[in-house]
Amino acid sequence: MADALFWIGGGLIVAGAMLSVLGAAGVLRFPDVYTRIHAASLTDTGGATLMLLGMGLLGPFGLITLKLLLVWAFIMLTSPAAANALANAAFGSGHRPRIGNFQIMGEDKATDAAPESAGKERA
């Protein structure tokens, strides 16, 4: 039982870490501010949730579990609010979402790329 909990908890922590790495990749590769915020904030909350869940399974049940729960509630409160504020500030300072077809992997080309070349990566 304890062994199973160890593996499940460890697996959840690794999964959370992988999700955070994915989020970092998204921040680097996504084309504009809003998609980047989207990548960062979603994986932030998701990854933290998975990791805290894993830690809760690894640690003894009791006060530590309660503390982890509080940390989770705090992250769930602050992270979306921060993402919202960030998007708000970006919009306020004149950034507009890039709408239309464009290539994600290419360089920072014009927003209106040919539809067939970017069909899959439609935003």
Partner: peptide, 18 residues
């Protein structure tokens, strides 16, 4: 600041006492 910061204000109001 405008009135776009409703989310931020509500969250901050909850967080400051905490």
């Amino acid at each position: 600041p405008g009135d776009h910061h409703v989310v931020l204000r509500v969250t901050a109001k909850m967080l400051v006492p905490l």
